[in-house]
Amino acid sequence: MGKKTAEGQVIVVTSGKGGVGKTTTVANVASSLARLGHKVVVMDLDIGLKKLDLILGLENRVIYDIIQVIEGECTLKQALVKDKRFPDLYMLPAAQTRNKDDITPDQVKQLCAQLKKEFDYIFIDCPAGIEQGFRNAIAAADRAIVVTNPEVSAVRDADRIIGMLESANFKDIKLVVNRIRNDMVKSGDMLSIDDLLEHLCIDLLGVVPEDQNVVVSTNRGEPIILNEHAQASTAFNNIAHRTLGEQVDFPTFDDITLWTRIKSLGRNMFSGR
């Protein structure tokens, strides 16, 4: 399958705080779009602290990295790692032994200009923080996805990032809420989606429930979207469709919770508890 659009779009996935699920979001939304037949490349800009290759399970296939491309040691094409599971997915690896200052926003822009000709979507995995790495990651982006968790510290950092994206004149900034637990929201012990939207005031792109399957997939180096039964898988596929501009309803995951409750109630009754 070939490229579908004339000019590729650059989407940066960012959060401020580390550990909220940026890389997992990049890996799964990109894989999902590639599975739908779009030509997708993921660019790891977390220079010095790379994770994307590991999350995608491509760590043993990396030969060159982004810094070697910039310094002319290899061509861009040579550095791109092709994902065998998704024929339309490619990865441009970060360098592990260098740091964020070894690359400039202009160099990222040049690379993206080249990639836009070949790919429909270019996903940038942004490092945590608001320094040079963040400036590099947003330099060439047309759109931004802000990932957060329903937790005060992640929301505060997300708000700061949204403020900085607005100052950088981003018009398309969307929110992904990762690791939400409906049972805790209901019992009044976790911020709800409505709460997060009230605080952050941007449009919602996706809601990913807390799902143990993500840990299992990460252990194996497989995107969670390959596990059809996982709730997180449905959530990431929905995000991919919404990224394409399609209207997809937000499932509440209530039905599943209710069903689980009935099942556990049944189990408890029959086991005599």
Partner: peptide, 10 residues
Amino acid sequence: SSKGQANNRL
């Protein structure tokens, strides 16, 4: 609730 406190603090 702790959620209410989180909202107020935020």
